[in-house]
């Protein structure tokens, strides 16, 4: 059983992880941050990433035949690496979103996704 800080430490232990943020998506709050990026403004990043996820859900919902959608994870590749967003549904509020920025040279996307999936099962029991 994991606490939020332990979970963040395990996210940062994923090979190639540069930064990580735990986000409460509904309010856009940065719950916890990890990594050494001094330029990272966690508050604003969290709000922006929360909005990204919301916009993506809106877009996917309109294109999906049933009109409903549930995102397992989101992978965004940029010039400076991969960005993974993993929403975890909680019973109180949320979803709680794990965001992790991975180095494109040193990381393995499949491994990172697998680790995030395993972690989510230990943080939240639904």
């Amino acid at each position: 059983m994991l606490g939020i800080e332990d979970c963040l430490a395990e996210v940062m232990a994923i090979p190639g992880a540069l930064d990580a943020i735990m986000i409460d998506q509904t309010s856009g709050t940065a719950v916890a941050t990890g990594g050494g990026n001094r330029h990272l403004d966690a508050e604003r990043s969290a709000a922006g990433l929360g909005e990204t996820l919301r916009a993506m859900l809106d877009g996917l919902a309109t294109t999906s035949p049933g009109g409903t959608v549930r995102i397992r994870d989101v992978i965004i590749t940029t010039d400076d690496g991969h960005h993974l967003l993993k929403p975890l549904e909680t019973v109180f509020d949320g979803p709680l979103v794990i965001y992790v920025h991975l180095d494109s040279q040193r990381s393995n996307l499949a491994l990172a996704r697998h680790r995030l999936q395993a972690l989510s099962g230990r943080l939240i029991t639904m």
């Binding site: 059983m1 994991l2 606490g3 939020i4 332990d6 979970c7 409460d24 309010s27 709050t29 719950v31 909680t90 019973v91 109180f92 509020d93 949320g94 709680l96 230990r122 943080l123 939240i124 029991t125």
Partner: peptide, 21 residues
């Protein structure tokens, strides 16, 4: 509550965090 197994430490923390804010 965590020892009883009704919820994980992470869930309790997230719940408290949300409720306080």
């Amino acid at each position: 509550l965590v020892a009883q197994g009704v919820l994980t430490k992470g869930e309790l923390e997230f719940c408290v965090l949300g409720a306080v804010l």
